[in-house]
Amino acid sequence: MKIAVLSGKGGTGKTFCTVNLAASQAHSTYVDCDVEEPNGHLFFKPESLVTTDVNVLYPMVDSEKCDGCRQCADFCKFNAIAVIQNQIKIFGDVCHSCGGCALVCPQNAITDIPKKIGSIAKGTSRTNTVITGTLDIGEETGVPIIKDIETMLTSIDGLIFVDCAPGTSCAAVESVQNADFCLLVAEPTIFGAHNLDMIYSLVKMLQKPCGVVLNKSIGDDNPSLDYCIENNIPVMGEIQFEEELGKLNSDALVAVWEDKKYQEIFDKIFQNIIKEANHETIANS
């Protein structure tokens, strides 16, 4: 079973929730798909890391062979190719690596060359498997990394918790598409409720069963909870704002491993997810 953990923006405690959920379930897999800023490994400190590069293909032109016929430029839907004085120039930041220009070139002047854009590291922390995707600095999109991670996950059994890219980016959509359940992390503020609305719209559009974790709760007033009630979204659990948690977090410690109280809280959230997911499956069959 694959559970995608999402939030409307960064800083809501998405990584905190995903790390602790995964750590609360022995032998599960934690996957960091927040490739621009992967933080989960700071808590897990995984060992025996195996790292693989993620490459995309970029077209390279052999200017000796190119006669400036412009067929590649005319073909490219993304306008990534320009022709000046019978020589072509390819813009890597606009190119979508479709491979088309290499195919249409009558002179065979274009070759697709792999270029590294990031990496995936796999390791272990206690009984957990920890997978971390990292996008190299200056690269535009992490989607190819998330696609490679998804392929890797097809050979992993058991429980998988995916720490998704924040917001409703293409990268987040990519992770959600293959999930069995989406857990939305929301803060107890009006902005929190607004961000929840954004991410809930995405999950609804992709027709995924979902539930909400109310994080950093203080007192009774919680606009995110009101939003859940209004929209009939099941709440999987609530995590109170506590200084102790903040301390554990800033020391990069896994809360459920430090204190049994948190193990119970996260295990309860997990049980609720299972119940809700089964309920959804029965309702839909």
Binding site: C76, F78, N79, A80, I81, A82, V83, F91, V94
Partner: peptide
């Protein structure tokens, strides 16, 4: 996409 590139062309 790439409107600037095409316009420059």
């Amino acid at each position: 996409g790439g409107a600037g590139i095409k316009a420059a062309q």
